[in-house]
Computed example of a mutant assay.
Amino acid sequence: MAETIRMLIAVFGNAASMSLYAAPMVTFRRIIRKKSTEEFSCIPYIIGLLNCLLYTWYGLPVVSCKWENFPIVTVNGVGIVLELSYVLIYFWFTSSKGKVKVAMTAIPVVLVFCITAAVSAFAFHDNRHRKILVGSIGLVVSVTLYGSPLVAMKKVIQTKSVEFMPITLSVCSFFSSTLWLIYGLLIRDIFVAGPSVLGTPLSILQLVLYCKYRKGSVVEEPSKGDQEKGNLEKVDMEMGKVETNVTNHMNENL
């Protein structure tokens, strides 16, 4: 029974996390359509790629005991594919100067993962120490990613408008962090539950702020023609504002 509950939570956690990984597709549809990266930054996607690489490695039998963390491998494996796709699309459509920036950011990130994987595989000969090494580094990266919505929340409070914080992302973040927190506690793994200790309260705070300030957002009723032509542009701009804010926060951390 306990194993069934854990698997159900893991399945729902996978679904919520995949929704978060898929969210930037709106932004990259815009980049492909305009053939320009505009003012968007590649840093969030490169850091996200590092996070997925570390936790996929953490869940493999090389680090974990057999396949005890298989659900973590599946969701982060999908994350690797999506985040890598975002980085490659960004690299293709950015300027020559932007390509250099992508390379200068991505190469150290790949090196961090390769060194972590090599040390954990060859320097340590038991799963416990391997999990401590990989999990600790993954925890730091995850906390950085979970802390990034603080920028968007600050903007919401300053403007008293939720246009900078789409409700869909907040809801997906809440379910994802909550489910992985429960799963991590059930399997008694601090490196799985740890990031959600910060992520869950932050996602709840996002929902509270949304409920408080959503009436303060001015929403004009568009005509039918405007709806047909402008809805995608509006979503793109909202996603762009959020990701630009997140990028600035990550740049400060880096």
Rank of each mutant, 00 (worst) to 15 (best):
E68N: 14
K66E: 15
E39K: 12
I46D: 05
P44T: 03
S41Q: 12
L60C: 13
N51Y: 08
Y58S: 02
S36E: 08
K34W: 00
E68K: 12
L50F: 07
F28Y: 14
L49E: 07
V73K: 04
G59S: 01
K34V: 01
P44D: 01
T37P: 04
I72D: 08
N76I: 08
Y45G: 02
I32F: 09
L60P: 00
F28Q: 06
E39D: 14
V81Q: 06
Y45H: 07
I80W: 10
K66H: 14
P44W: 06
L49S: 07
S64G: 11
V73I: 15
L53Y: 05
I47H: 01
N76M: 06
R30H: 13
I72S: 13
P61K: 06
R29G: 06
M25Y: 11
I43T: 12
V75W: 06
E38K: 11
K66T: 11
L54N: 00
L60K: 03
F40N: 13
P44L: 02
G79T: 10
P24A: 07
C65Y: 13
W57N: 10
L50W: 06
Y58V: 01
E39V: 02
V62L: 15
R29T: 05
L53T: 03
W67T: 10
I72N: 11
W57I: 09
P71H: 06
S41H: 11
I43R: 10
F28M: 05
Y55W: 15
T56A: 15
S64R: 04
P44Y: 04
L53D: 02
G79R: 09
P44G: 03
A22I: 14
V75I: 15
N69F: 10
F28V: 04
F28R: 05
S36Y: 01
T37H: 02
K34H: 08
P24L: 06
V26Q: 05
V75S: 07
I43E: 09
E68C: 09
P44M: 04
N76P: 03
N76F: 07
L50K: 06
L49T: 06
L53E: 04
V26G: 08
R29P: 00
I80Q: 12
A23W: 08
E68V: 10
P24T: 03
K35E: 14
L60S: 12
V75D: 07
N51W: 04
F28C: 05
